[in-house]
Amino acid sequence: MSTLVIKDLCAEVEGKPILKGVNLTLSKGETVALLGPNGHGKSTLLNVLMGHPKYKVTKGEVLLDGKNILEMSTDERSKLGLFLGMQNPSEVPGVINSDFLRAAINEHSEKPVSTYQFYKLLDSATKEVKMPFDLATRGLNEGFSGGEKKRNEILQLLLLNPEIAFLDEIDSGLDVDALQIVADVICKLEDKGMGFLVISHYARLYDLIKPTRAVVMINGRIAVDAGPEVAQRIDKQGYEWIKTELGIEVAKEEKDMNTVSIGSCAVKESIK
């Protein structure tokens, strides 16, 4: 059974520290809801785990079954069984979706799949995510709607069948029907034993995929690691209770702009 252990992980972007000592363990077969206010490091954590070049790890280690993945390239991490469903999947002009999917499947198989095998796989996966087959023959995410991009992420999840999947706001941009389709796929993969670490701002997705645990990220650290009921509580009460019950000051999202701007707001600010 695969286990991912994150120990005292610190990371920064352009010199600004975001992750400030993350400790978290996630085993295959678990579905962990990753919650937290905007700007506290949730997406950063998932990107760091996958090795995004923008983020620099300054401290700590991440072990997958004892192997330190931080020393590995992004493609090696993928081949080891990690997957990141992106919040904003890139549009890559000219790269045909099916060429890309086939290349990705080949990297995960011992020998290259035949054209017939590949189309069979693709046909059944596109049906499962109810994605029109012609989307597979178009440019990678090129001109896809927000919902189509997310379905394409889930399609890749199905085709690559990782050990542990990180999903970053996979529900944003999805209508109710599409959300149900995505949730059904996740539930099926949960039953097969895939591990999940899932960011969402909405309880609706969590209601459907039934996390086994919920963790809350505050100020670049995991502040709460508890049962799934925490996701419901945050949906109803927000994050205020963390401050009152746990005594953690929740830093406000930093804004580059001055709070005093032109117009009436500025007038009010200056009167104060």
Binding site: P53, S78, P89, S90, V92, A104, E107
Partner: peptide, 10 residues
């Protein structure tokens, strides 16, 4: 990054 996160080498 997107392509490599799916297992493709650089």
């Amino acid at each position: 990054f997107y392509l490599m996160s799916r297992g493709l080498s650089e």
